[in-house]
Structure formats: structure tokens, C-alpha cells
């Protein structure tokens, strides 16, 4: 089992991005997926950092893939996707329309926002050239085990959401703009004010969700730390760690120690809580009654 750093879901400054990937080059992860996942309007602000990051990551021996947008609607976004594919690096598809633009036979990865729920879908994607699939976070452990087996049978590496705020939904509407009473087209990039998304609580003050542009995330930070053995037994080959603004290098190092058997979830728990936004963890999608649930006896 190894580690994959997922694409940063949030809108960070170019300088923050540069610093982040310079650190990731030194982190104990096997591969990194980067690029703009959530909003094409953010890209001009940091796209110049992408080649710099690719170079640093590859020089450090990491496999690098570029993600598509999560929701491709505009003509400009379709063109952007076609250009992304032409760069020649592995592409992680997070909107299926990219499959139409991908040359026949070209290898690709399927990201967690592609609906892969069953063996038939794994087999179909494998036939189309998928070599790696990160499963949707809502899948229970029993499904993960079936799909990891299906992946092994057709040469596809199966990855599972290992850490980070859960990507729960995408919309045509921008919630950051809506919360600021602005239209999507004149958002003034307010999502940049919230490096881990903007927290949403219930009327009773319970932490619940977080909005990030057109995306809705969990307020809690999901962690597979308590399920490493079960996932390994199920045949999962990689854990996906999703970037957050605080102490991410320590988080990656913690999971690396965990899969190497050098630490325990209990010993890692403080690091995870201290770095997570509002300090709340969840792990209910894998074995709990609901995604928001957290149990240390998983």
C-alpha cells in the first residue's frame, strides 16, 4: 500500500501552491495528482505554478497526473480539458466527458468524482484504458473489497479516500458567491478567503458541511487511519490524501508511518485532530452508520 496526494480542492495563492508542492516533493507519497478540480476561473491565478510543481515532483521520483475539472460545462472548459490531455502526462478524469476527448487506447486514471460503484463499471473503464481508480468516498468497505478484487482481475490499481474533507457534491451554482450575495460571474474570487472551505453549521450550531465554490464538502476531515488493515486485506493499493492548509507534510508523514507499521492510529490521532479544520474527524462511510460518524474501534 502506498500514498497518493490528491488535487488541492481549494483556492490558494500561487505562492502558497508553490510552497506546498515544494514540500510535497519531499513527502513520502508515491504519486501526486494536481490541477484545478473545482473552478476554471481560479486557474489563471496559479496555473504558472503547475509546470514548476510537475518538475519538482518528478525530479523527486514521484508519479504525476493532472486532474480534469469536476464539472465541465463551458466551451472554454472543454477546450481546457482537451489541452490538458495533449500535455501527455497521465490524466485523472473527474468528469466523464473527458473520456470523449481522450484518444482511444490512451491510459488514464479515474478520480473519486467518477461514479464507480460496481464490477461492470471497473471492467468498462479498464477496457477504455483506466489503470488506476480512486473509488467514490461513500462506498462501504464490502463494496471496496469487491471492487479492489475486480481491479486486480483487470490490472487496475484501486485507491480509496484516505484523508481530507469529503467531496460530497458539485453544483452549477457557486455557494461562496451566493453567501456573499454575488452572482457566479462576478464572484470576485471570495472562495480564496477560505483555504479549507467555508464552514456551514446547523441552526443548533452543530458543525456539518463546508462550501468551496461550486463544491460542498464535509465539515469533518475523513480519515481511513483506523481501517488501514481492513483496506490492505481488501486489496486496496493506495490511500488518497487530500490537501489541507495546515500541517499537511506532517499528515502525510503520519500516514506513511502508519502503513509502514511504525505507528498506531491512536498515536496519530492528535496530529490528525490538531491539523484538521475545527479538529473533527469522521470515518463512517467505510464501516459506520453514516459518513459523518466517527469511531476509534473501526
Amino acid at each position: 500500500m502506498d500514498l497518493t496526494i490528491g488535487p488541492n480542492q481549494f483556492f490558494w495563492s500561487a505562492e502558497t501552491v508553490r510552497d506546498f508542492y515544494a514540500r510535497m516533493a519531499q513527502a513520502p507519497a508515491a504519486r501526486v495528482v494536481l490541477g484545478e478540480l473545482v473552478c476554471s476561473k481560479r486557474l489563471p491565478f496559479w496555473e504558472n505554478e503547475i509546470p514548476v510543481a510537475i518538475e519538482a515532483l518528478q525530479a523527486a521520483g514521484k508519479q504525476v497526473a493532472l486532474t480534469t475539472l469536476a464539472l465541465i460545462t463551458l466551451k472554454r472548459e472543454r477546450k481546457l480539458t482537451a489541452e490538458l490531455i495533449e500535455l501527455g502526462l497521465p490524466v485523472e478524469i473527474n468528469d466523464l466527458s473527458a473520456l470523449q476527448l481522450l484518444p482511444e487506447g490512451r491510459e488514464f486514471w479515474a478520480g473519486p468524482l467518477v461514479n464507480v460503484y460496481n464490477t461492470g463499471t471497473v471492467q468498462f473503464l479498464a477496457r477504455r484504458g483506466a489503470t488506476r481508480i480512486c473509488l467514490p468516498p461513500e462506498l462501504p468497505l464490502e463494496s471496496v473489497a469487491v471492487l479492489a478484487q475486480a481491479g486486480r482481475d483487470c490490472g487496475v490499481a484501486v485507491e480509496v479516500w484516505g484523508h481530507g474533507r469529503l467531496p460530497l457534491a458539485v453544483s452549477g451554482r457557486c455557494y461562496h458567491a451566493r453567501l456573499h450575495d454575488r452572482a457566479k460571474d462576478s464572484c470576485q474570487f471570495v472562495c480564496g478567503e477560505d483555504p479549507d472551505g467555508r464552514d456551514v453549521e446547523t441552526l443548533d450550531g452543530e458543525p456539518f458541511l463546508a462550501v468551496n465554490g461550486i463544491q460542498t464538502l464535509s465539515q469533518s476531515t475523513a480519515t481511513a487511519a483506523w481501517h488501514i488493515e481492513a483496506l490492505r486485506e481488501a486489496g486496496v493499493s493506495s490511500l488518497r490524501l487530500s490537501p489541507q492548509s495546515r500541517d499537511f507534510p506532517e499528515v502525510v508523514a503520519g500516514y506513511a508511518a502508519l502503513i509502514a507499521g511504525q505507528t498506531t492510529p491512536a498515536a496519530l490521532a492528535d496530529t490528525l485532530r490538531d491539523s484538521a479544520p475545527l479538529g473533527r474527524l469522521s470515518n463512517g462511510f467505510l464501516t459506520g452508520p453514516c459518513g459523518a460518524d466517527f469511531s476509534e474501534t473501526a
Binding site: 461514479n115 461513500e138 460530497l168 457534491a169 458539485v170 452508520p289 459518513g291
Partner: peptide, 17 residues
């Protein structure tokens, strides 16, 4: 209001989606 088929808000809160 969410992209249909791409929303797990319900299972996050209830386990059923």
C-alpha cells in the same frame, strides 16, 4: 440543485443515498 447522481450529502448524514 446539485449535479444529480454526483451527490452524497444524504449518505453523509444518514448512510443512505
Amino acid at each position: 440543485v446539485m449535479a444529480e447522481g454526483r451527490c452524497s450529502l444524504s449518505s453523509y448524514a444518514t448512510g443512505r443515498s
